[in-house]
Write a protein that binds this DNA or RNA. Structure first.
Lengths: 153, 153
DNA sequence: TGAAACTAGTTGCGCCTGCAACTATTGTGC
DNA sequence: GCACAATAGTTGCAGGCGCAACTAGTTTCA
């Protein structure tokens, strides 16, 4: 008799892929964080903030920056406090929307980013890129983008 | 004239793969953490501790458990404090090595794990496995294991 | 055997984060 | 135009983590 089946079960190969994925992420971010902090005194989140700002042309609203760096707005408030205390970004009120605040990449922030980028990129190459063929990189990107799209609202 | 070249440069496809990897990890763990906490009141790290204990036959030294769940020994001390306060594990002195402490999966912990496992696994299937072909899963595992091996010692 | 080096686990401390509550501003519907 | 809901950002608070220092036990080796 046909019994109702789950749409799909999680099988061993997928579970193994998942476990390797988790472990690789943990180790890679640990190593890259250490390298960037040690060599340049720049935490990875700081780097991420600076990169996102440059990517957006140098300025971003708190709200948008929070989404870009995957942080709560509260978390971002404190983070921007620290980074701006170091002079790498500045806050500026948003003229259109008086609730809003822009975060702006300063000259000094841009310099630090220029120093950090090659270091960080060669870390990624050294520990990740080097071990991944072009074909595999394409697969990774395709798969993860697919996963991400499914998680969007 | 042949100028010295870097061994390898990080190229766009690899960088894109890296970015998607990071975002996918952040979103997936966020969602799975929420599901497990909401449905069963069990944080993901707790689940991980219980699973690792079962995997090891029900008992593990603090030190080994810390490595298994990718936590500092200090972090694990507090984590085990919390989980054992909830009755899911117990500490027991190690007879061979009087510095050592075993963490032991209790009956209650095993029950909670049995409840959580199918929930967590269907979450992984729903948000990850479902979007990944068998062939892709094999690639992911192969790539990440390769990366992990390079990070050992 | 005995001292020095090492290892296991815990604790003090400070950092970073999210949640919930709050203020200020903007948008909506009658 | 005005009350009510929604949104932007900040702050109090508590949880969870790692580092460094500490205690206790073990290994090494002369």
């Amino acid at each position: 008799m046909a019994r109702p089946r789950k749409i799909q079960e999680l099988d061993e190969p997928h579970l193994e892929a998942w476990r390797s994925f988790l472990r690789a992420h943990a180790r890679l971010t640990e190593v890259l964080e250490d390298e960037l902090s040690r060599d340049l005194g720049l935490p990875l989140v700081w780097y991420d903030v600076l990169i996102q700002l440059r990517h957006a042309g140098g300025r971003l609203r708190m709200h948008d920056l929070a989404r870009a760096v995957l942080l709560s707005r509260a978390g971002l408030t404190r983070l921007v406090d620290r980074i701006s205390a170091a002079g790498l970004v500045e806050r500026e009120p948003c003229p259109d929307d008086r609730r809003g605040t822009f975060v702006i990449l300063t000259e000094k922030g841009a310099e630090r980013l220029d120093e950090a980028r090659p270091v960080h990129h060669s870390g990624i190459q050294e520990h990740f890129g080097r071990h991944v063929s072009l074909r595999e990189a394409a697969t990774l990107r395709r798969v993860f983008d697919r996963v991400l799209r499914s998680l969007e609202p």
